[in-house]
Design a protein around this nucleic acid. Sequence first.
DNA 1: TTGTATGCGTTATCAT
DNA 2: ATGATAACGCATACAA
Lengths: 353, 353
Amino acid sequence: MTMERGTKRKRFQESAQSVKLSDVAALAGVSPATASRALNTPDKVGADMRERVRAAAVKLGYVPDAAARALASRRSRTIGAVVPTLDNPIFATGVQRLESRLNERGYALVVAGSDYRVDKELRQATNLLERGIEGLMLMGTEHHPSLYVLLETRGVPHVNTWVDEGDAAHPCIGFDNVEAAVRLTDYLLDLGHARFAMIAGIAEGNDRAAARAVGVREALARRGLRLDDGRLIEEPYGVREGRDGLRAVMAGPPEERPTAVICGNDLLAFGAIFEAAAMGLDVPGDLSVVGFDDTELSSHIPPGLTTMHVPSGEMGALAADYLVNRIEGKPARHRTRVEVRLVVRGSTAPPRG
Amino acid sequence: MTMERGTKRKRFQESAQSVKLSDVAALAGVSPATASRALNTPDKVGADMRERVRAAAVKLGYVPDAAARALASRRSRTIGAVVPTLDNPIFATGVQRLESRLNERGYALVVAGSDYRVDKELRQATNLLERGIEGLMLMGTEHHPSLYVLLETRGVPHVNTWVDEGDAAHPCIGFDNVEAAVRLTDYLLDLGHARFAMIAGIAEGNDRAAARAVGVREALARRGLRLDDGRLIEEPYGVREGRDGLRAVMAGPPEERPTAVICGNDLLAFGAIFEAAAMGLDVPGDLSVVGFDDTELSSHIPPGLTTMHVPSGEMGALAADYLVNRIEGKPARHRTRVEVRLVVRGSTAPPRG
DNA sequence: TTGTATGCGTTATCAT
DNA sequence: ATGATAACGCATACAA
């Protein structure tokens, strides 16, 4: 007994098989090649043809297979982003705008988190690269060396955001964190403050946090001042941590305490403000507090947080445009600086005396 | 003159050609099939073979082509999420944990935003589907009808999060927003409040926001109370909007004003608290304010926000597990409820009198 | 355990 | 302007 089989049969999983381009072509009575053209490059095909194919596609509910398309065209129309975490609202805003702009340009976004660790960042980026991303958005300038060679090797465009690399070693969209911190500190110095403390972010694995601390020290040094022992503490970005941090840097006899506390970001500053209140300290009467980033709450929280505004969303959108332009061979600025600006609100005042 | 040509040559773009599996196989002196197995299913191959291939892969810097792999295996190891926006920190946290868990399980995440619009949600989901996602996380229960048929047709697992669908029409991970709002309102009622106002989220395109308003009304109705004219206002989620909202619902003569304001989420509640202070109202002395979600700031902001805690991160992680389990044929609970709990802090007090 | 052959669905080359 | 047809790089059914 001979077993007859069709020439074509499903070989692997039977798959709730969806309609493919050849089905559309068949229904429209054209070749797959023409169907492909009708759908992707409508102007390179006759008007009637175009419509027949389109109609067939709609009728069958045709959905192109991205994998096949990517394999054949070597284009995934997907870009990747690896960010420290989405838990910081300021990063979330950046990713939000990145996706939004990417979407407008016809690209999808794959995100991955690094937890502020260069090794995990490398793993995640490798992962995304394997998945065929055509561009990569990174945060900061401090990356695993292997990451750059990987990117170079595969010829995948990338941008470092939240930083402005003076040597232009890599494409970047951002600002000089050192200089921004200097400006913030200068503002406080000009107000007359002389005793400072800083609640910084964790420098390890976070060049922006490190740079901000450097900027503060630099500005103080220029005026012959410094952060005394115990007046600089590093904390993970968070409100709870800001409270802890404030308590730590306010240790010691009242007359030696700082009159101004500079926080590595606004979350820390919120915590510092809350803790100051809990300690019976008046902000800005007894203590000035400044932050960094400028989140939605910063302008509303009493007494209003003086902070350095960082255009997070703008950087996300610019990163999207940069990457897509590079991918599509359009002109793209290698280095673009965004404006950070000091926003003065109620949390600062000249020291008494 | 005859033009001789090699049997194999590059046909399309010359492409900074990366090394492919066959290269690795050649170097290792095995067939591509064996190389594939050595890399993907190490246990189905000899130990020495395994090592030789691995070494060759490393030496050549082999990076698999996800598109080809996806096409051949019909597996992308990618899941998608379409969320209203990443700008709400509570959503960002959910996505963060989703990605984190997905990563642990070997999957990547593609995110897209819907801006609270079902039509955009459909477009985005379609997009992700075309890109080969194997699972989809959605928020809420109100989706475009076509979305469900699409998902059904392609046989792609999905979950609705932030909701608990009583009829179990679709897989879900979340809680009953109506009931949660009832509990929150009951708490206020038990305290003795009798004049209420609500600053709700925009119900259009947001079933969670709508459900919360329903819950508030329901709880009030059970005690013979209601939201008087002008005491219910819808605002987009935001601090600024919370301020505006408070001003609106506090209109009228003092003796008719509400003693309790229920906010659709914590951002609105923050705004309400700030605006109350600006109006010279003491919270909770003159006015009780409650929120919904419980963000990082809620426990720190003076006087402490009474709110319904929503385990956003947990839902993200559970969604990841659900989707991956479904994809990999492992058992997965169709409907899982997460616990929301009332967190009482300083922003509420019995009305005077 | 390993090799051989084929097909995944699409785009692009070439000829018409 | 349209149609054949060969890759794209990999994983799998099947034979050995």
